[in-house]
Design a protein around this nucleic acid. Structure first.
Length: 577
RNA sequence: GCGGCCGCAGUCUAGUCUGGUAGGACGCGGGCCUUCCGAGCCCGUGGCCCGGGUUCAAAUCCCGGCGGCCGCACCA
């Protein structure tokens, strides 16, 4: 390829070309023509992805002390009935036979007829469209049939018509449905966090942009359970000191809105972002910078209300700027409130509340309905009235004496004092649904950002941070001579035993081998030369400066370890060559 | 799902308009050279996205599918 041609190709093309050729990312099912939205990670991509996930674990599991679980990716239908995904994830669609425009059938019916079409079935929508002879709002053409577009992959569990199952569209639900056990393992103390790294599936209408929009992808999610009355997450890191570009709703709505650069703690203080979301925004920024992503290409953007998922009260995306695609969401941090726990509690009948013991038990009084009196007096309203009575709490007996008023079906009902007795109750604590703040990472998108942001288009190579490089050490004999080859193979083997990812290469000239290693971002290359055979010293070459130092082969593992962990500078690693 | 452009070894590409059975570069493997930054030479490897049609003959023309990029739409 000529210099000119290379310049004509944008960064995405250049990155993907190397990624494809060297085995980071490649289209799946290639011999059968491929399938949109599916990619394989090759050997190098898999190593890189694993390192990204390990770093994520370091932050969330190791430093924050969150519990990691691993649940099925195929979940039974009830879970998504309760979570709202069945209702909100299945869109009835129709299209214009004339101009081919694609519409949400329920939105179309709502707009044209001015009725609430939410939750209507496909048949009902089709009937409405036919009865009112609705046409394409764009060109007036005839509308095609109404179909359900299901963003969740649906299947049957068991033979024939078994149980409904869905491939999970997010990893979160498994954590909510195991709340009782998780809460117990957290010693019933808030806040606590639970994480999961795994695959999720969405049947995207039109997946594009490589691994940016996949139909099967890897998420790393944390569900952080907080007390709604003290909705702060103290955390174990000083991430609130991170500086970050904030792009809140108000700024997005202005014509000349701008991003606000400030520390997370300032943003929290000024009420731009909530404390727990701010904490994780700061944490995320620090992690992305560790991945070699350009600090100025990271921002926190608040979701506009219309963008928010059905479960979210507030949501901030961490976006990374990419050459071709602009700002791309790589992490979403949502305040899911008690939406999920409440819904699963209602659907399953299980009590998914947390309990906090009060410092001192409190004595309260409440009316206990006497059904023999209530029944004859209020007939069929009696059970509802009893239910309302039981909700009443008072600090003193006097407040409840002489009759009570309750509201049933919007009407006030007078309950005479002979219909209930006043009982004492000891309150030892409060039961409540914890709120959830959820940082959710798209690992595949982060991986692409890592590739692009560490790519050097001048040299056509990756300059990964040393710890992140899929291959950490290259080992080469200077000459393809039996004694050097044998020595080099031994060094490579020993380094592998020490836990390094090592590539041995004796093919072609030494320069070609350095170039091959550079292209995939190998930070250090060890060369066995004539001197090695004399005095057991080897050279280490630094990828970014191409400079070399000479060290004794016995010190090699320790020196490399320190270099990769960033404990020493390259110049300190040995004698300059 | 609609519209536009496109699809040739691992990668990049010539050839497609005007049909005659595919050429290069890089890469990769082996060898020579015995060499610290993609050196050279020799040998080798490997390709027309898939299916159908037209034709004596299809990479080339036509139809359909799959895939890619862009725009629209959709997007938790």
């Amino acid at each position: 390829m000529s210099e000119k041609e290379r310049e004509d190709r944008d960064l995405y093309e250049q990155v993907m070309e190397v990624a494809r050729r060297r085995g980071f990312i490649l289209p799946a099912f290639r011999i059968y023509g491929g399938a949109r939205g599916f990619y394989d990670y090759g050997p190098l991509g898999t190593l890189l992805k694993r390192k990204i996930e390990e770093k994520w674990r370091e932050y969330y599991v190791h430093k924050e002390g969150f519990m990691e679980i691993e649940a099925p990716t195929l979940l039974i239908g009830e879970v998504f009935e309760a979570s709202g995904h069945v209702e909100h994830f299945i869109d009835p669609m129709t299209y214009c036979k004339e101009c081919g425009e694609f519409f949400r059938a329920d939105h179309l019916v709502e707009e044209e007829l001015g009725i609430d079409a939410e939750g209507l079935s496909v048949k009902e929508l089709a009937r409405l469209i036919e009865e009112h002879e609705l046409r394409c709002p764009e060109c007036g053409g005839e509308l095609g049939e109404v179909t359900e577009f299901n963003l969740m992959f649906r299947t049957n569990i068991g033979p024939k018509e078994g149980r409904d199952g869905y491939l999970r569209p997010e990893t979160a639900q498994a954590i909510f449905i195991q709340f009782k056990d998780l809460y117990r393992w957290a010693r019933q103390k808030l806040p606590f966090g639970v994480v999961q790294i795994g695959r999720a599936y969405r049947n995207e209408i039109s997946p594009r942009q490589g691994v940016i929009r996949l139909r099967e992808f890897t998420q790393a999610e944390a569900e952080v359970f907080l007390d709604p009355e003290d909705k702060r997450y103290p955390g174990n890191g000083d991430y609130e000191r991170e500086r970050l570009l904030f792009y809140p709703i108000e700024e997005q709505r202005k014509d000349d809105g701008e991003m606000l650069e400030m520390r997370v703690e300032e943003a929290i203080e000024e009420g731009i972002v909530s404390q727990p979301i701010g904490y994780f925004l700061g944490l995320t920024k620090r992690m992305l910078v560790e991945f070699g992503i350009d600090e100025d290409a990271i921002r926190a953007r608040q979701h506009l209300p219309e963008e928010r998922a059905h479960y979210a009260k507030d949501c901030w995306d961490v976006e990374v700027k990419l050459d071709r695609f602009g700002w791309v969401e790589v992490v979403g941090i949502a305040d899911r409130t008690d939406y999920d726990l409440r819904h699963h509690a209602e659907h399953s009948g299980e009590d998914l509340r947390a309990f906090e013991e009060l410092d001192e038990p409190k004595l309260v009084y409440r009316p206990e309905p006497i059904m023999e009196k209530l029944g004859p007096k209020f007939k069929s309203d009696a059970p509802k009235i009893a239910e309302e009575l039981r909700k009443i709490k008072a600090e003193s007996r006097e407040e409840l004496e002489g009759g009570l008023t309750v509201e049933v079906d919007g009407e006030e009902v007078e309950v005479p004092p002979d219909c209930y007795e006043i009982v004492e109750e000891k309150i030892t604590g409060r039961r409540f649904y914890p709120h959830v703040v959820e940082p959710s990472y798209g690992i595949d998108r982060i991986l692409y950002c890592v590739l692009e942001h560490n790519f050097d288009p001048e040299e056509g190579m990756f300059r990964f941070p040393a710890w992140l490089a899929p291959i950490e050490v290259g080992v080469f004999p200077l000459l393809k001579r039996d004694d050097m080859v044998e020595y080099a193979k031994r060094v490579a083997r020993e380094l592998r035993e020490e836990g390094f990812t090592v590539e041995y290469d004796d093919s072609g000239s030494i320069g070609r081998r350095y170039a091959r290693a550079d292209e995939i971002g190998v930070p250090y290359c060890v060369t066995i030369d004539h001197d090695t055979l004399e005095d057991d010293t080897v050279t280490i070459r630094d990828r970014d400066t191409t400079e070399q130092v000479r060290v004794h082969v016995d010190e090699l593992p320790e020196v490399l370890r320190k270099l990769i962990d960033g404990e020493i500078e390259f110049e300190e690693a040995g004698e300059p060559v």
